[in-house]
Design a protein around this nucleic acid. Structure first.
Lengths: 120, 120
DNA sequence: AATACCGGTTACAAAAAGGATACTATATGG
DNA sequence: CCATATAGTATCCTTTTTGTAACCGGTATT
């Protein structure tokens, strides 16, 4: 399940110009939910239902997203021996390499919202 | 065409937990192409065909993406009085507020690719 | 006239993403 | 026995996104 874009050797310029690195990142963390979920999990581990409710994401999609993120080494899935079985999702250390991205996007979202609202 | 997510007043916690700011950012700059195009335009203005060829993006999609980015104040479109009419697309000053995001994603893409390749 | 380049648009098709609903199975409390 | 809660899965369907191919109007070259 390794995803990296083809890059012709010696064609560095074209590759970098076409935003190869950006596309690699988007392959792992693109889409509507992954960055949002990671952002939420930064406050601490959460259970499936909890994530589903707070993000308002359907179980089907949530399940799929979490599996993909697990495969990419971004989250761990832990089954707990509780009365009704619960499952905890938590970020891995590797996911912390994404913090710059998350923080930058969070900051931008906040300032952009201000910009939009202030000029009503 | 203003896009910001609803946020119930006084419900700050739930909103921030659900990654509201991240979603706002993704609304403007999410999808397969916008960040790639901005990243390319950071090296200087480009014409329509140039962008289309280098990014390997079809004219239809490119046109749509550029229009959306123009509406969001991220790029400018300038028609030039040349032999066959050419059109230049360039980043706006506002788009520079995205540079942290772009740089972070670029860096992550590069390091992630390394990580993937080194453990073949 | 024929060709080719520019910046697109139109019509159509395919694929990916997302969502609604119901349902599995286990277990607790009433 | 019934309701509720847990974590999902299965099925079906709609929406969004992306792509392909052809084409237009204009200009320049051959």
């Amino acid at each position: 399940m390794v995803k990296v874009h083809k890059c012709i050797v010696g064609d560095e310029s074209a590759c970098s110009k076409a935003g190869l690195a950006i596309r690699d990142t988007l392959d792992v963390v693109g889409g509507k939910w992954k960055l949002v979920l990671i952002s939420m999990l930064r406050d601490g581990k959460m259970r499936f239902r909890e994530l589903s409710r707070q993000a308002e994401i359907s179980p089907r999609i949530l399940s799929k997203e979490l599996q993909e993120m697990e495969m990419n080494g971004l989250v761990t899935r832990t089954v707990c021996n509780t009365k009704p079985v619960t499952v905890e999702y938590a970020l891995t250390p590797y996911s912390e390499t994404l913090s710059e991205v998350i923080i930058a996007m969070h900051k931008w979202g906040v300032q952009h919202r201000k910009r939009i609202i202030e000029r009503v």
